[in-house]
């Protein structure tokens, strides 16, 4: 598989990222047609706002998934809840403490990520189990720490997270820049190259002198860090932190990565695809809500459409 895709990676990669954007455009158009063309711009604005959070955690999740089969971070929901609670509590509604609060939540996220890799490397627990159990620990810590406390974000922080320029959310623009930077990091730095090399064959990468341990530690730490960032921003955006605010990111963070064209088998990552996939998932739900579909129909449709999009736009044909 890798042998084949090595010959034409450009075309395939581009096709994979285009696919999720095309799918997003299609569901958006369908929703627009149904509602008689009204509110299309606002719908896109909302999609950009909410996709931002999925993109931030999705990029962290992508780094981990790209390091090969079995690597996944299931501790994202707990980390988001904990980081959100820490950010709001440390900021305590004061504009002057925004930076401190942000730093505290990022540190908490990075610590969770590093601890995850500790469980995986030192205790030799498979990532899926290690991160799932650390999610329980972190979520419980968030409950004990926050006790359901919903402290309001400082006004300046709330304004920043909800600000728009010509209808485009500022946070989304930042996330586009962030994604662009991460795409360069992945393609042009030793770290990015190491992630993909490990994903293709960990032993070969190690024999070739890639710092396997350090790279994997960094992927888990970054994923935790990004989840921490997402938690703090989400708490600012939605007017305070809540214990259940990370819940939907458990599977959604994996879904945006896979729909975006990153290979679950590792070794092949796709940053722009995450943006397309996040927009697609949001607009898909919006479209089905606009149609007035019941919950059952909606879930079935969501499943079927995701399968269809992955099959059509997944790009990577098995080499047989």
């Amino acid at each position: 598989m890798n042998g084949l895709s090595k010959g034409m990676p450009r075309a395939l990669l581009e096709k994979a990222w285009l696919g999720s954007f095309l799918a997003a455009a299609a569901v958006w158009a369908a929703a627009m047609i149904y509602s008689g063309g009204q509110g299309g711009g606002q719908m896109l604005g909302a999609a950009l706002s909410f996709s931002t959070f999925f993109v931030i955690v999705g990029i962290g999740q992508m780094l981990i998934i790209a390091t090969g089969p079995g690597n996944v971070d299931l501790s994202i929901p707990g980390t988001i809840a904990l980081a959100g609670a820490i950010a709001m509590k440390v900021m305590d509604g004061e504009d002057s403490l925004i930076v401190v609060g942000l730093a505290a939540s990022l540190a908490a996220g990075a610590a969770v990520g590093a601890a995850n890799y500790g469980l995986i490397r030192v205790l030799r627990i498979p990532p899926i189990i290690a991160t799932l159990s650390s999610n329980l620990l972190v979520q419980s810590t968030a409950i004990a720490y926050g006790r359901g406390l919903r402290v309001k974000p400082p006004p300046a922080f709330a304004d920043f997270t909800t600000a728009t320029v010509f209808g485009v959310p500022v946070l989304a623009l930042c996330a586009v820049v962030f994604a662009a930077v991460m795409a360069v990091v992945l393609a042009r730095t030793v770290f990015g190259r190491s992630v993909l090399a490990i994903g293709q064959n960990m032993r070969a990468a190690w024999l070739a002198g890639v710092a396997v341990d350090r790279t994997r530690l960094l992927t888990y730490t970054l994923s935790g860090l990004f989840a921490g960032l997402c938690g703090a921003l989400l708490a600012g955006f939605s007017g305070g932190s809540s214990l259940d605010m990370g819940m939907e990111y458990l599977l959604a963070s994996i879904a945006v990565v896979v729909i975006g064209g990153t290979s679950v088998a590792g070794g092949k990552a796709n940053v722009p695809g995450i943006w397309g996939a996040a927009l697609f998932l949001f607009l898909l739900l919006t479209m089905l809500n606009t149609f007035g579909a019941g919950a059952g129909v909606r879930l079935v449709m969501t499943g079927l459409i995701i399968i269809a999009v992955i099959t059509m736009a997944g790009g990577d044909k098995p080499a047989r």
């Binding site: 149904y34 509602s35 909302a46 999609a47 706002s49 909410f50 939605s238 809500n289 606009t290």
Partner: peptide, 23 residues
């Protein structure tokens, strides 16, 4: 219009924001 908010403020906010433009 009808959306599922899962009894959580963040989910409700997201899904209401999505359907509002079409209502």
């Amino acid at each position: 219009g009808s959306v599922h908010g899962d009894w959580a403020q963040t989910v409700a906010q997201k899904n209401v924001a999505g359907i509002l433009p079409s209502l």
